[in-house]
């Protein structure tokens, strides 16, 4: 089943964009856990409420690396408000398709972005939208359960 990935997923897995860490990031989102085999870290730099720079580091399968990579591209340049609207469906759509068993990787990407923005808002002591607070709590709670 390993090679059921489409060309675009393979392209993003083999040549991922925006790999690395940002020095002094404005926000960091860390999701997944080692037991499950997928860990995703997203770093964001935010200027005038826009995502100016975004980078990732991921330990995981080809799908986890591809979804990490594409979410950085989808989020870059977007306002915080618009970035928070990005869902795992957008991630799958941008990649064309993902094997059903790998859909949890797209969710991981969505959650990593939310967590990075949450981290930014929290550090800046800015109000956190209710839905984001709820989502953050949910992600934190589910953190040790493999999807």
């Amino acid at each position: 089943m390993a090679l059921e990935y489409n060309k675009k997923v393979m392209q993003y897995f083999l040549n991922p964009k925006n790999v690395g860490e940002i020095k002094n990031p404005d926000g960091v989102g860390k999701v997944g856990n080692l037991t499950c085999g997928d860990v995703m870290w997203l770093f964001v730099k935010i200027e005038k409420d826009k995502i100016k720079d975004i980078k990732f580091k991921t330990l995981g399968c080809a799908a986890a690396i591809a979804t990490s990579s594409i979410i950085t591209e989808l989020a870059k340049g977007k306002t915080i408000k618009d970035a928070l609207k990005l869902s795992n469906k957008d991630v799958v759509k941008a990649l064309g398709s993902l094997p059903v068993i790998k859909h949890h990787c797209s969710l991981l990407a969505e959650e990593a972005l939310c967590e990075a923005i949450y981290d930014y808002l929290r550090k800046k002591k800015r109000p956190i939208p209710k839905f984001l607070e709820k989502k953050h709590q949910k992600i934190k709670k589910a953190g040790n359960v493999c999807k």
Binding site: L3, G60, A64
Partner: peptide
């Protein structure tokens, strides 16, 4: 390193 990524 994750095995599937390594394999591919």
């Amino acid at each position: 390193v994750e095995g599937e990524a390594l394999l591919i």
